[in-house]
Design a protein around this nucleic acid. Structure first.
Lengths: 197, 197, 197, 197
DNA sequence: TAGTAAACGAGACGGTACGTCACGTCTTACC
DNA sequence: GGTAAGACGTGACGTACCGTCTCGTTTACTA
């Protein structure tokens, strides 16, 4: 839907146009906010024709998602120092820094758009969230094996307990995200809210 | 911004138009999805003129937010049976049911729109999230006093640890929200992820 | 076809927009040539929105046709001095002058466009050509009654014999149209149309 | 204008492509109407690359004009039975038949396009109209010499008096062209052109 | 019990962006 | 080297909504 034709052969594709388009999405979104960016403006800023954009991406959301993945694509490995609390803290701190950067502005827009676009939602989950969640789950599983974490809680639930508060603040704007709180939040998630008996 | 004139006197306001408009937003959003609903369609469905809508609401988001608050407005009291785990479970279960209903569709749309609209974001926080968060915080504070929860963790952080995973699934669509998992999730948040020593 | 909706009520129509649009078509066509004029350019030059144009006219051709009729609308009466040759000469001379003016540029464009648009072709025939042809036929019929023209040649054929050479030069650009040749041309045609003495 | 480069050497030119292109123009124009035919569609239908078309023809009009000349190119000789009325009737009847055939559809399109394209207009005049007009003029001149036509009317004007009514109906669609009326029309025109006995 | 001023429905308006189409140019690979 | 295929930048297309602005018409307070 939206494609000019049925997925053209990428052999003759202009890498120059691809790069300029992805860069323009990022720049414009940071400047004006995601919702205010139009495909026309992207095309103009990138020095690219609109049909070229529609030839390769079905929507602004798909374009922005690729821009995001293009920016942070390779970073997938989870640290393993042996200390699960320290590893989680360093990883979550990095995520907070990322969400507070220009990247966060674009990411927020994509998440917003995905609320009304199932295809984009699936792509967002599959290319951004799921891979990182899995990397985290692997590290948590090892911590379980090491005896540092309980074995009777699904690692998927652990991931949510650790990451969800960050997204909560990121998307609902109740409190600003700060890298300084991360260590405490990890600790509270690991220790639980009940008093030490 | 968006108002036809400087805040008209609400004395002569037509309650019939207000009701029809709010109902139309809700119905249309459920039918077509939030992003696909236009103010023109709302006006037509409600049998209302466009200027009437712009006279009373600055944007589709503000309109949808009022429709939401109109739907679940009064429910603000937090149960207190003396058992904090049970109270949290019942409350979170109710929220999950709500998010999985038609209400969730509209709510999702408003949250999405708020990502690019600071006014709407603030209104969403102040009228929907903050009051309920405060009610929960009060109940948690009492549980701290009762010795059921630790006193060295801020209640705001507790609220996030409990609610955030629900919003995480609601907005990122990693896993479906189910009322059956709520009790376990509450338990894990309260107990922590470390093994029982 | 092309209408935004099914013929809106003309009661609230903006006369200012109508005038500005018709004037813009004329001005732009004279400046750039009919084929080079776009509806976007018309809208911009008239200070009018594109949808307003599409609301009231189905195509550029229909718009240009109305501009033409707006320009020369009332002139329909055929002179009658009693001398058919003189009357035809004055009328045809006026037509040649018109075709050689800015009007001719627009008229040519409409005739060209009508070649591929049956609706426009019919409208052109019914609103421009047929009424004037009929007026001429009436005058010719009177000349027949007066004994100045043969009665055994259909007046429609007479009209063609008189007018067609003008259109021939106008559209095929074989020779320039000149007002000075008109009298001779009328004379040559009439020699054949006069009653056998 | 439009040429990819400055007139390539026609020695290596593919006759197969030329033929297929000219045939495609004709077929598509008859099928869809001249205005609706695009160069892309011609290229696709002919199994020819677009640059090949632009290499050899400057515009769709030039292409269609060549297709026309390719179709009726050789027919230039005017009959001479000694009877000018009969010769004119047979020739004009043939033209009417041609204009009412598929050829007429393409021809109409070219004439329309020529209204806004001086180059095409000149080419149309020089390659189609002028040669046939000259052939007719020659025949008429002989008839003058033979004493069948007046000597004081320019043969160019005679040509117009005879041919213009056909083009008038062909382009303005006031009445359908019929081969049966031709003899009468020739007669009416000639009555004026015959020498005063 | 009018008179009147507001809010109202309807919808035309000047705009902006949409997603598509065809243009004419250019590049690549083949023959 | 001419050719087919087709991606490219460009720009106009006709449409959908935007938010504003008249219009007459209710409607409900005032006098």
């Amino acid at each position: 839907m939206g494609h000019t034709s049925g997925t053209p052969s990428p052999r003759r594709r202009s890498e120059r146009s691809r790069r300029a388009t992805l860069d323009a999405v990022f720049t414009l979104t940071v400047q004006r906010g995601y919702a205010a960016v139009t495909i026309e403006a992207i095309a103009a800023a990138a020095g690219v024709g609109k049909p070229t954009i529609y030839r390769w991406w079905p929507s602004k959301g798909a374009l922005a998602l690729e821009a995001i993945n293009d920016k942070v694509g390779g970073v997938l490995d989870f640290p393993d120092t042996g200390d699960i609390a320290a590893d989680l803290t360093s990883q979550l701190t990095a995520l907070v820094a990322l969400l507070n950067s220009d990247f966060g502005t674009v990411y927020r827009g994509v998440i917003a758009e995905a609320q009304g676009d199932p295809d984009l939602s699936a792509a967002l989950r599959d290319t951004v969230i799921a891979p990182r969640s899995r990397a985290c789950q692997d590290r948590l599983a090892k911590a379980v094996t090491d005896g540092q974490l309980r074995g009777d809680v699904p690692v998927r639930a652990m991931v949510e307990l650790l990451y969800a508060p960050l997204y909560y603040r990121f998307l609902l704007h109740t409190d600003p995200l700060s890298t300084r709180q991360v260590a405490d939040q990890v600790e509270w998630a690991l220790t639980g809210l009940r008093p030490v008996s």
